[in-house]
Amino acid sequence: MSNKVFAFVALAVALALAAVTQLIPNEYFFTAAYTVLLFVILATAWNILGGYTGYVNFGSAAFFAIGAYTTVFFYNAFKAPLAVGIVAGTLVAGLAGLGLGYLTLRLRGVFFAIASLALAVVLYVFVVNWDYVGGARGAYVLQPREIPFGMPRYIHLIYSVQLLMAAFALVVARAIEKSTMGRGLAAIRDDELAAECSGVPTLRLKIFSTMVSCALMGMAGTTFPYYLSYIEPSSAFSLSYAVNSIAMPLIGGMMSWMGPLIGAVLLGTVQQVVQVTVSSAWNLLIVGVLLVLFVTLAPNGIMGWVDAWRRRKGR
């Protein structure tokens, strides 16, 4: 399937899903689905660098928060609408990723992981002390009263927006994966020295994939301030974003765009169900247990199983 056809299909599926689900009377569905979609974007974005290129980013929450707080900033400064926040948040997170990549990716392996973790901590402290975007108290972002497309509540809108953004993230991830560049990224993941010897421009590819990955993570966060109309640093920088964006691709499979999607839908849904039926305190525990199970039993994730099964069948 060519990129154009896939983009069209993804858009059509997202629009159809958005339209059909509007009929669901239970409002909680939208709240829960928004969160699952948020994780679909985060996991897909993380996988571009973590899965395709093999560089582990522990700072997903930082880029998510950059997206969220860019929306807050533009809201406070200009009362800018959501669309402005989405574009600006994506760009700012991308630039932050570019900077982080430029500073750390000359070094190999674990240095990037440490730097990404440090970035999350530094940004957290920065936001806590920045009064203009609410500081430690948090900030209110009021949902507009007029809701387009005759939707009953604002959550219906940002759920639909999140659905479209998830489709967009998947299209980008798949396009990168299937391109010559995607093969170059896979080479870096498998053996960076051999990639250099083969003439793969490793530094450029690493910086590019970091930038795209971080931009999409930022995009996931741009709608977040509108979600509860309120945002504060500890929720924007929550540990669960960093953990889930690593765990979901790992469980779904990191070699293709489908892995993070499956992992995020599966794990995200389980978490939402447990949150309602048992307790929200269980969420990270479940992730931890599933992670241990998958790492030991299926190190290549669900898609790894599928690939192995296909290969057996093909013979």
């Binding site: 170059g184 896979a186 498998d190 053996d191 051999a194 990639a195 083969s198 003439g199």
Partner: peptide
């Protein structure tokens, strides 16, 4: 090598 890529993909990477 790039162990998780096929032989052909390995060769094509030589011609990146």
């Amino acid at each position: 090598l790039f162990p998780r890529l096929t032989v052909e993909e390995n060769l094509l990477l030589g011609a990146y």
